[in-house]
């Protein structure tokens, strides 16, 4: 099965460790991710002002590319891209006036009215493959790994784009269970990491990161599981400083969910690009016999 795929800018540089294991894993599962042609940056954040349509152009243009490709759904891996594309899609579907304005502004493009479905890879795994079938494909169960699912914001908020229950999401837990790992629930799993505040007040980010990491740690997690390259940066880059500041904290490895998928499916660990991870997860994997 071929799926239209929107990568997003960061996945082509700093988050290749999110993209490459996903492509390889899906291939192993019999899916092909077909990158949409001529895609542009989605804009990363949804514009929240009623009159600000210019910032909706970028995500809508990508949805037009999917339609041009003759596909009715597009898959994303980065949860920021997922959120921005899906919210823009809802706008085009539900708001006739804004839809007309945007379509006439983009006079060089075909008209669009929200025909494409925007999906996150986790939804594809849950709805197209199913957890049981996925578990059947697992060659190296991630036994003994105590992993805390971290959703962040954009997979679950706002309510109309959420891929799971806003208050009590289970999709990452079920995913980890299918891979044979031990999911560790913790109350901060949907708490914001600070997001783009890293640009304006980087000093405040380490506080937000500590709230999340220390909570996961105190609930017994050995590592955090992520879906977003900005969460990865905010939770990862300041860990050296946190190790100095907090007695006994030795740092917490961060995984993209796709890296764990590739490992469990028995793919070459090289596709995981662990060298790009913050908080070096290799030693944890070695201890558990998951890396040579």
């Amino acid at each position: 099965m071929r799926l239209a795929y929107y990568p997003g800018c960061t996945l082509k540089t700093k988050a290749r460790n999110l993209e490459e294991p996903a492509i390889a894993s899906l291939e192993a599962l019999g899916f092909e991710l077909e990158e949409i042609p001529r895609w542009n940056c989605c804009g990363a954040v949804h514009s929240l002002a009623d009159d600000d349509l210019i910032h909706q152009v970028a995500p809508v243009r990508n949805l037009i590319r999917v339609k041009e490709q003759g596909k009715d759904a597009v898959v994303t891996l980065c949860s920021f891209c997922f959120n921005t594309l899906k919210r823009a899609n809802l706008l085009m579907k539900d708001d006739a006036e804004k839809r007309d304005t945007l379509n006439s502004f983009m006079d060089e493009e075909i008209d669009y009215s929200g025909e494409v479905r925007v999906l996150h890879l986790l939804e594809v795994l849950r709805d197209e493959i199913g957890w049981e079938a996925l578990a059947q494909e697992v060659k190296f169960p991630l036994r003994n790994l105590k992993l805390a699912p971290y959703y962040g914001c954009t997979l679950l908020r706002p309510r109309e784009v959420a891929i799971d229950s806003v208050e009590n999401p289970t999709i990452l837990r079920e995913f980890l269970k299918a891979l044979g790992a031990t999911p560790v629930e913790f109350p901060e799993s949907t708490r914001c990491c600070g997001s783009y505040q890293i640009v304006s007040s980087p000093d405040s980010i380490s506080g937000y990161a500590w709230d999340i990491l220390s909570s996961a740690l105190s609930h017994g997690a050995e590592a955090l599981v992520l879906t977003c390259p900005l969460c990865d940066y905010d939770l990862g880059q300041g860990q050296k400083e946190l190790v100095k500041r907090h007695n006994g904290f030795k740092g917490m490895p961060l995984f993209y969910f796709t890296q764990l998928l590739a490992l469990a499916l028995g793919l070459d660990p090289q596709v995981c690009h662990f060298e790009l991870n913050h908080g070096s997860p290799e030693s944890l994997l070695r201890e558990n016999g998951l890396l040579p």
Binding site: N40, C41, R61, M106, E108
Partner: peptide, 24 residues
Amino acid sequence: FRCVACNACTKACPQGIEVMDAVS
């Protein structure tokens, strides 16, 4: 990173370059 993909650049290119695609 302030590009909004409005495509005004491409429309303004006398060389017919897909300017926005290059920015992307």
